[in-house]
């Protein structure tokens, strides 16, 4: 895994910061910069973006001096199930309603692990949903719709 000439992790890291800095920098240029007395909305972020580009540059530069271990394994399966589960909840909470949306959110997240079995996932999601309905809807009276309009309610 050892890189030959430079530390790939830091190189990627530095490049990422430079890229993010450039993004914010260009975005701030669209805003009014203003003067030191009446700073415009773009003044402060522009300074920060420059600083980020600079820091990213230093990290990138240093990557050529120091060696380090590589990035290691990546949790593809986790990325594929965990992140969408939150998005799924956002997309469906108002349409499907609290119960189906939460059940499916937990169900999707369950499959991020290769150890989870479908039966266990269903049981877990169902238990979670019942608990949450009892606590948040009945106990605390949060204004969630139990079942939403997409299901014909």
């Amino acid at each position: 895994m050892k890189s030959v000439e430079f530390d790939k992790t830091n190189a990627v890291c530095g490049a990422l910061f430079v890229a993010i800095g450039l993004f914010f920098g260009f975005e701030s240029l669209d805003l009014e910069l203003g003067t030191a007395f009446r700073m415009g909305p773009g003044y402060f972020p522009f300074l920060l973006a420059c600083a980020l580009v600079l820091l990213g540059g230093i990290i990138l530069f240093q990557a050529f001096r120091v060696e380090h271990e590589g990035i290691g394994p990546i949790a593809w399966r986790g990325l594929f199930f965990i992140l969408p589960s939150a998005i799924f909840f956002g997309l469906t909470i108002r349409g499907l309603g609290f119960v189906p949306s939460l059940f499916l959110t937990a169900f999707i997240a369950s499959f991020a692990s290769s150890r989870m079995t479908p039966i266990l996932a269903i049981l877990l999601s169902a238990g979670l949903t019942v608990f949450s309905v009892l606590v948040f809807e009945y106990g605390l009276g949060l204004p969630f719709r139990t079942f939403g309009p997409w299901l014909g309610f």
């Binding site: 939150a86 909470i93 939460l102 937990a106 169900f107 979670l128």
Partner: peptide, 10 residues
Amino acid sequence: FPIIMAFCSI
């Protein structure tokens, strides 16, 4: 972690 994701979302 499915539990965590559910509560986080709520």
